[in-house]
């Protein structure tokens, strides 16, 4: 795949989808229940690109046997995943309002048995990359050519099991694994660099035998390019360190520790909706110019 495999219109469409997904996250939180807003908003572009463009999936057949798979290892990004799934047609957006409520399919952390389309349950950090390695090993045994994607957090890099899995994937040359690190620089208690620094991530992953790229994880075109390059490089597993912004999209949330997990007051919800509307208007103007 090259740079030219997507048009600027498609890029614009993806950016618009990201706004729709952000709106879904706001609705899910405001009408449903307090959520991990910060780390969901930082992963919007990655997840939107994956489910709308990069992955081979079918929302009507969520368990389709040849689908690419996605392990959300940072399971607290569940709101982000639900928001993208609803936009992609896995279930009606109305269901987002049940998030975190009694009897819901939309648990605070992902439950594969409640919601078809989730490839692995998660929530306890550090386990997803091992699961992805197992999936990729099985695919190799079965001669399946599909890809396994993983979403991890930068805080999650502190979990030792991640590095056990990194060794395993490199040892077995699992080049069908494409992992994203949603590097929003923060964890529950503050900035990752202040609590337990995980940098330099590029050098770490390279020294573990991975093919590494570092991109602006809020830029959909860079995400598409990085995934395309990863697919073309053989013999190593791939990690894309995506520099993102925790709470991305809303000025009062961005890079603020207290927005790791929270509910929204009515004022906050309205303010956020207004910011989205402004961003949508800007896109509409841009689309108009393009046409």
């Amino acid at each position: 795949m090259t740079n030219n495999d997507w048009s600027q219109d498609e890029i614009l469409d993806l950016k618009k989808k990201c706004l729709e997904v952000r709106r879904n996250i706001l609705d899910l939180t405001f009408y449903g229940s307090s959520s991990h807003l910060g780390g969901s908003l930082s992963s919007v572009e990655i997840l939107t690109c994956l489910l709308f463009r990069i992955m081979s999936i079918n929302p009507d057949l969520p368990l389709w046997g040849k689908r690419d798979r996605l392990v959300i290892s940072k399971g607290h990004a569940a709101p982000g995943m639900y928001a993208v799934m609803a936009a992609r047609g896995f279930f009606p957006a109305e269901e987002l309002k049940t998030f975190g409520k009694s009897g819901t399919r939309l648990q605070k952390h992902l439950d594969m048995h409640k919601l078809p389309g989730i490839d692995a349950s998660s929530g306890s950090l550090g386990q997803g990359l091992s699961i992805a390695a197992g999936m990729a090993l099985a695919d190799r045994m079965d001669g399946k050519e599909r890809f396994t994607y993983v979403l991890m957090g930068d805080g999650e890099m502190q979990e030792g099991q991640i590095w056990e899995a990194a060794l395993t994937a490199a040892q077995h040359k699992l080049d069908k694994i494409i992992a994203f690190v949603d590097d929003n620089q923060m964890q529950v208690d503050g900035f990752t660099k202040d609590i337990l620094n995980v940098e330099p991530l590029v050098q770490k992953w390279e020294s573990f035998g991975w093919h590494v790229q570092r991109i602006d994880g809020s830029d959909v075109e860079q995400i598409l390019k990085a995934a395309a390059l990863a697919k073309s490089v053989q013999g190593k597993p791939h990690v894309i360190i995506a520099d993102t912004i925790k709470g991305k999209g809303f000025d009062f949330m961005e890079l603020k520790v207290e927005w790791h997990s929270r509910g929204l007051t009515e004022d906050e919800y309205c303010s956020a909706i207004n910011q989205l509307a402004a961003a949508e208007a800007a896109f509409t103007a841009l689309s108009g110019k393009g046409a």
């Binding site: 386990q127 990359l129 699961i131 999936m135 090993l137 899995a165 060794l167």
Partner: peptide
């Protein structure tokens, strides 16, 4: 040999890899 894996001293990882294999029908 094609159905056997020695994952080294990575017990936590071994559980996850086992899960991933099982999720693929193994």
């Amino acid at each position: 040999p094609e159905r056997y894996l020695n994952l080294g001293v990575t017990e936590a990882n071994m559980i996850g890899v086992s899960a991933g294999l099982a999720l693929s029908g193994k």
